[in-house]
């Protein structure tokens, strides 16, 4: 079977974020980037499904040139080839993003398309669902297990508060993958070497029908407004710990 995995490159998890002078987005210059966390699990799931059922794993990534690094890492882990939509993401909204991705997917005629359930930076949590709608295929979200039986799919979907549910649907389909459904592999030296010769097809927005206009946009970003008065202790650990315990004992009266 042919499996497509949409992976996004996002700033590394513990990055110190600075707002850009335009206040529209963050200043990306000094940042390091990595694969979006649930997307790493989606890729791993695709690789495991290929090991079981045979076929091909293709990664699909939209982003500027620097995203090429994340694509290489996915190829080193075992993806067979990649499609890189080389563009600046800032003027796109989720619908526009999904349109371009869906367009690139449609040409591939994949049996299964996996995305992460949510990006760490935008966190809109819906690109996969929108892609499914645009492509006219079934979908399910927050997936913790994937079983392929011929032309049907049986998945385990996470509900709230520790509940789950199994769902069956026909292929082709889009699934949005939740972190933690499998154990991530590391790239091997051999994998890294092989990745150098794997195909990365570059596409532009023009080749995918043009840059879609946005229907929603971010006016400005800012530090969150604090709703609660907190008492914060800084400085050396010992003094801060003693001050905190004083407060807990005499003010909050927890012991």
């Amino acid at each position: 079977m042919k499996i497509l995995v949409a992976i996004k490159q996002v700033p590394m998890r513990d990055s110190q974020l600075r707002i850009a002078p335009s206040a529209r987005w963050i200043d990306e210059d000094a940042l390091n980037f990595e694969i979006n966390e649930p997307d790493a699990y989606a890729l791993e799931e695709a690789l495991q499904l290929k090991e079981k059922h045979g076929g091909e794993v293709v990664v699909l990534c939209a982003g500027p040139e620097r995203a090429g690094q994340t694509i290489r890492e996915a190829l080193a882990k075992g993806a067979d080839r990649a499609i890189h939509l080389e563009l600046d993401l800032n003027s796109l909204d989720t619908l526009g993003m999904a349109r371009l991705l869906a367009h690139a997917c449609a040409a591939e005629k994949a049996d299964l398309i996996l995305t992460g359930l949510q990006s760490d930076d935008l966190g809109s949590g819906q690109t996969g669902v929108v892609m499914a709608e645009l492509m006219g295929v079934a979908h399910s979200t927050i997936i913790m297990q994937v079983e392929v039986n011929g032309s049907t799919l049986r998945v385990k979907r996470e509900l709230e508060n520790g509940w789950f549910q199994h769902i069956e649907m026909p292929l082709p389909a889009v699934l949005t993958i939740q972190s933690g459904l499998n154990k991530l592999r590391y790239a091997t030296l051999m994998g890294i070497k092989k990745a150098k010769n794997k195909e990365v097809k570059k596409l532009t927005a023009t080749e995918l029908g043009g840059m879609p206009a946005a229907v929603v946009w971010t006016d400005k970003i800012y530090a969150p407004h604090k709703s609660k008065q907190s008492q914060i202790f800084e400085g050396d650990a010992k003094t801060a710990a003693t001050q905190l315990v004083e407060k807990l004992k005499f003010e909050a009266r927890v012991f």
């Binding site: 909204d93 966190g123 809109s124 949590g125 819906q126 669902v129 979200t141 229907v215």
Partner: peptide, 19 residues
């Protein structure tokens, strides 16, 4: 809502403003 509202919004050529 994460599972169906984005699909619904797409049918109106809109984007769900989520969360």
């Amino acid at each position: 809502v994460r599972d169906f509202a984005p699909k619904l919004a797409t049918r109106f050529s809109q984007v769900l403003i989520s969360d």
